[in-house]
Amino acid sequence: MSTRRRVGIAGAIVGTASAGVAAAALAKRYAVGRIRLRPDLEASEPFGELRGRPAIVKTSDGVELYAEVDGPEDAALTVVFCHGYTLNLDSWHYQRRDLRHTHRLVFWDQRCHGRSTRTPAEDCTIDRLGADLAEVLKTLVPGPCVLVGHSMGGMTVMALADAHPELFGDKVRGVALISTSAGKLAEITLGLPALISKAVHWAAAPAVSMLGRRAALIDKGRQAGNDVSFLALRFLGFGDPSSISPTVVDFAESMIRSTPTDVIADFYPALMSHDKLSALGVLDKVPTEIIVGASDWLTPPDHSRAISAGLPSARLTVIDGASHLVPLENPETVNETLTELIKRAEDTGGGSAGAGREAV
């Protein structure tokens, strides 16, 4: 089948799906208004306003990575946060808020995201992100550290382990992998029947490529939030839409909307081809926590269980009622787990501690 015809069919599938979503959102516009009128305990939360000490990390290929250092400089251990696909360092809002007074924290925008500079599509790879993380550690982390990665950020940590296993056990004393995967993302079903799921995956790559070529036009239409994006993210990103704060949904949607369409297109192939199962043994040198929402459609719990199977001493926490954006949806459990991990990393000096377990 010709590429032109394939793209045409892909566009038709995506267009039909988009029309259906738009029609459904229009029919339920009144419901969105009702959602926003409900009592919202997070309405006054200063999302995107917490700031640290700014820093720039210049990579070997000339990209300037924006970072912020927060918390006491004299802390014995640093916690480094790697955000997910289409997000930025502000996605760690609750973790920064609750840990900044007692721990030294480093947050950074992965290349092409947030305030970091752009790079050609050929440099939008998971291995390159792992190399970026190595340079962040060299520049901003003078002593031992714990690495925390969400979604694509977890893949970044795995890429670092693959390329620099010598860092784990000495420099890197602990790891948290949140809502992520070691590979085979192209096989996820998104909760769809098998045939429909295969059709979606077949259409996705050319459709995303097509969107990337029309990025400037599409971005103009993404500048303002709308009911369709609000409802879609509320449904896909969070496990219990009825309980999630509309303010949190709006905050997450604004980060995604700020990520240019061509960046989304450039990184998509890297996510689908990601395979770091062979690197998991490196992480077994240090205390490792694996966290996933039980209702995560984007990196399903089976992917976290596969990581856990490759890390006999890791501890797996499956959070009921949570989905992919679990650091924003269930920060209490995430932060409790991180606090315990940091303590284990400090106490063990990097050695792997205890047998693995699964908590729900």
Rank of each mutant, 00 (worst) to 15 (best):
E332D: 15
P331M: 13
E346M: 10
I319L: 14
I307C: 03
D320G: 12
P312T: 06
P331C: 11
S323A: 15
A314C: 09
N335H: 07
R315V: 14
I307M: 15
S313I: 10
G310I: 10
P312D: 05
E336F: 01
A322H: 10
T339R: 15
L328R: 00
R315G: 13
S308D: 01
I319C: 11
A314E: 04
V334K: 09
L338Q: 08
V334S: 04
T339N: 10
D320N: 13
L316Y: 02
L338T: 03
L325W: 08
H324A: 02
N335C: 07
S313Y: 01
R315H: 14
T337P: 00
V318M: 09
N335D: 14
E340W: 11
E332N: 02
I342G: 05
E336W: 05
A309C: 03
A314I: 13
V326G: 08
S313W: 03
D347V: 12
E336T: 04
L328W: 00
N330S: 09
T317G: 00
K343Q: 13
T317L: 09
L325Q: 11
R344D: 11
L341P: 00
E332M: 04
D320F: 01
L316Q: 03
S323M: 10
E346D: 09
E340L: 15
A309N: 10
I307G: 04
P327G: 07
V334M: 09
G321V: 02
S308T: 07
L316K: 05
V318D: 09
L328M: 15
T337A: 15
S323W: 12
T317N: 01
T337L: 08
L338F: 06
A322D: 06
P331F: 06
R315E: 15
N330L: 00
R315L: 07
P312W: 04
R315I: 08
L341T: 08
L325R: 03
E336S: 11
V326K: 00
A322K: 07
L328S: 04
D320H: 10
T339Y: 00
E332T: 08
R315S: 13
V334E: 06
I307N: 07
N330I: 02
R344A: 02
E329W: 01
S308W: 02
K343L: 14
P331K: 14
D320P: 14
T337K: 05
T339S: 14
H324N: 03
S323L: 12
D347L: 11
G321N: 14
L328A: 06
N335G: 06
L338V: 03
A345Y: 04
I342C: 05
G310Y: 04
E332C: 00
T337D: 12
L311Y: 02
E329R: 01
P327D: 06
P312I: 08
A322T: 11
E332V: 09
E329L: 03
N330E: 15
L341E: 14
A345G: 00
G321F: 15
I307S: 03
T339V: 11
P312S: 05
T317S: 04
R344F: 01
G310A: 03
E340S: 15
P331R: 11
R315D: 13
P331I: 10
S308I: 05
D320C: 00
R344V: 09
R315Y: 03
A314P: 11
A314M: 10
N330W: 01
L328C: 08
K343S: 13
A314S: 15
L311Q: 06
A309L: 07
V326W: 00
P327C: 05
D347I: 08
T317R: 11
L328N: 02
E346I: 05
S323E: 08
D320Y: 01
L341N: 08
L325E: 05
